[in-house]
């Protein structure tokens, strides 16, 4: 019966365990975003420099991430690090590594786009005031670029959060993995529990992501006028 299924969510420590799983997902998303945004800013800056070699290498890096699905990235890290390089670390950190590199790639493109879209006359009027390269970057380009890139960055964050749903594929104890365990444990007594557990996880993701999406949309609308 459907009404008995919902009790699965609240039996024993089930709800607390699900929340714990959600925290793992959010934590991985946050740490990956922090590392990825820093690295991405650096890459983005490097891509506006003149050196052909640097630009080419970074372009290859970016294109690699454009082509390879995130699931596959996770498996690359998961299998190749321990087997090829004998590096053993918890799956959680492998996920952080894969996600950070992915975020860095995407963010470098956002940063470059924003820096290049600051109008040329802004750059020139800064120069005309006698600002040097660094001052120009710090006081003219960066503030404008941050404003331009904020909505895209928030959208990237919502995607990272959604992508944490893939963590169970490399056996991280994320919210979905916990959910599956609960479903299996209660399969005999509450066959409809599956509906409620996945339903709750569905709603949890929505609750985390939707406010961010709204914020990004709001900022984009504000930029238009």
């Amino acid at each position: 019966m459907a009404h008995s299924g919902i009790s699965v969510l609240f039996e024993g420590t089930n709800f607390a365990r699900l929340m714990g799983g959600l925290w793992t997902s959010v934590w991985i998303a946050l740490v990956s975003l922090a590392i990825g945004l820093l690295l991405g800013t650096l890459f983005g800056l490097l891509r506006t420099l003149r050196s052909r070699l640097i630009r080419f290498v970074l372009l290859l890096y970016l294109e690699f991430f454009r082509i390879v699905p995130t699931v596959v990235l996770l498996f690359l890290v998961y299998y190749i690090l321990p087997r090829q390089f004998n590096i053993n670390m918890p799956a959680t950190w492998m996920a952080v590594l894969a996600f950070s590199l992915w975020v860095a790639a995407e963010f470098s493109d956002i940063v470059r786009g924003a820096l290049e879209s600051v109008p040329k006359h802004q750059r020139e009027s800064g120069q005309a005031l006698g600002l040097n390269q660094w001052q120009l970057f710090r006081y003219v380009l960066l503030p404008q670029a941050i404003q331009l890139e904020l909505p895209a960055t928030i959208n990237l964050a919502t995607r990272v959060i959604k992508t944490t749903s893939l963590l169970l594929m490399i056996s991280v104890m994320d919210v979905i993995n916990v959910g599956q365990q609960i479903i299996e444990a209660n399969n005999q007594t509450h066959p409809t529990g599956i509906f409620w557990v996945y339903g709750l996880i569905f709603i949890l993701y929505f609750i985390v992501d939707y406010p961010l999406s709204l914020w990004a949309k709001h900022l984009t609308a504000k930029q238009k006028d």
Binding site: T158, K162, T163, T164, S165, L166, I176, Y198, G199, I201, F202, Y205, F206, D209, Y210, S213
Partner: peptide, 13 residues
């Protein structure tokens, strides 16, 4: 709803 939930959960459902 579709944009703010992961495909994986949609498929599990």
């Amino acid at each position: 709803v579709a944009r703010n939930t992961p495909l994986l959960i949609q498929l599990f459902f």
